[in-house]
């Protein structure tokens, strides 16, 4: 987060007191291996993550919560913890490896949670709402969850693998209007942006186009990788397809900061590739009026059929 996701970190630090979130960085953490290390050495990949889990357990002061803002970091921590819990053989092997570095980890000792999960489910929408001083009225947002936070979801933290609603509810609590769209959990391209850009560009265009079609002013994300692919590579994608999409991509923490009345600069706003300023200028002082429901009348032949509800 210190570098490519600096705005994520800055905005998180800016809002943490508002939501009573006490954060402690794991000293000397190492890279989680993303999706790459696992592809080369399976056991060592778990040992790599195991070191972070062990360091977290040893350093944690009065907590067993371990949070990550990045999808891949979160998933890898959760995955190693879950698979060590399920597979006694793996637990044993990882601990033998960790012992070479003087460490040990008992799976389950840390509860691995994504930052959005903590904000939505532990801190809660009401507590967030209570802190809002500048509601984001009039701002239409597409909540984008990506893949690895909601899938495979080892510990059943989310309401759906396909159409989760936690971030939508959070953004609504901030006063913004989440749009209904079908691509919430589609892939941002992941590492394909580097190893097979053509595949990634296709996926990125679909997401950006889909958000725009759904009427969103901007896309809200919860992961540095997704942000990078949708924001920085949006520019490359435009070159590739000769298009001119301008859909800004911000972190949910940045929008929380705005609603909490923080200065955009302190939230890292302005560091994005696709300028968010025009979209943010749409924020209105007043809540938009909801049109009153039309009175029911008798259906005539050829009238629309009723739509099934979501419940």
């Amino acid at each position: 987060m210190q570098r490519n996701a600096r705005p994520y970190l800055d905005s998180l630090l800016a809002i943490r007191e508002d939501i009573d979130l006490e954060l402690q960085e794991i000293e000397d953490w190492n890279c989680c291996g993303a999706t790459e290390y696992m592809s080369v050495h399976r056991v060592a990949a778990h040992a790599l993550v195991g070191r972070n889990l062990a360091l977290a357990r040893d350093q944690a002061r009065d907590t067993d919560l371990l949070t990550a803002g990045c999808s891949a970091c979160y998933l890898n921590l959760a995955k190693t913890d879950a698979q060590m819990r399920e597979d006694a053989g793996l637990k044993d092997t990882v601990n033998q490896a960790l012992a070479a570095g003087g460490l040990e980890y008992e799976p389950g000792a840390m509860k691995v949670r994504h930052l959005l999960d903590l904000v939505c489910h532990d801190i809660g929408y009401d507590a967030v709402k209570a802190r809002v001083v500048k509601p984001l009225h009039g701002l239409k947002v597409a909540a984008y969850y990506g893949c690895q936070v909601v899938r495979p979801d080892y510990d059943s933290r989310w309401d759906s693998h396909e159409h989760p609603t936690a971030m939508d509810k959070l953004l609504a609590a901030l006063g913004a209007e989440p749009v209904e769209w079908s691509l919430k959990t589609q892939c941002c391209g992941g590492h394909m942006s580097v190893i097979g850009p053509d595949v990634a560009f296709g996926l990125i265009r679909r997401l950006i186009h889909g958000a725009q079609e759904a009427g969103a002013d901007l896309v809200v994300t919860l992961c540095p990788m997704c942000q990078l692919n949708l924001d920085a590579y949006q520019v490359e994608m435009n070159k590739h397809f000769h298009t001119d999409y301008q859909v800004p991509v911000l972190y949910f923490t940045q929008l929380m900061g705005l609603a909490f009345g923080k200065k955009p600069k302190d939230l890292g706003i302005g560091k994005e590739f696709v300028d968010a300023a025009p979209a943010l200028a749409k924020i209105q002082a007043e809540a938009p009026k909801v049109a009153e429901a039309k009175r029911k009348r008798r259906p005539k032949p050829g009238d629309a059929l009723p739509m099934p509800g979501m419940e």
Partner: peptide
């Protein structure tokens, strides 16, 4: 069928069930 959100029932108007 709403339990399979990727099939869109209840969300996409022209997705119907067999009973409909």
């Amino acid at each position: 069928a709403r339990r399979i959100p990727q099939y869109g029932y209840g969300r996409l108007a022209n997705v119907f069930t067999n009973l409909e």
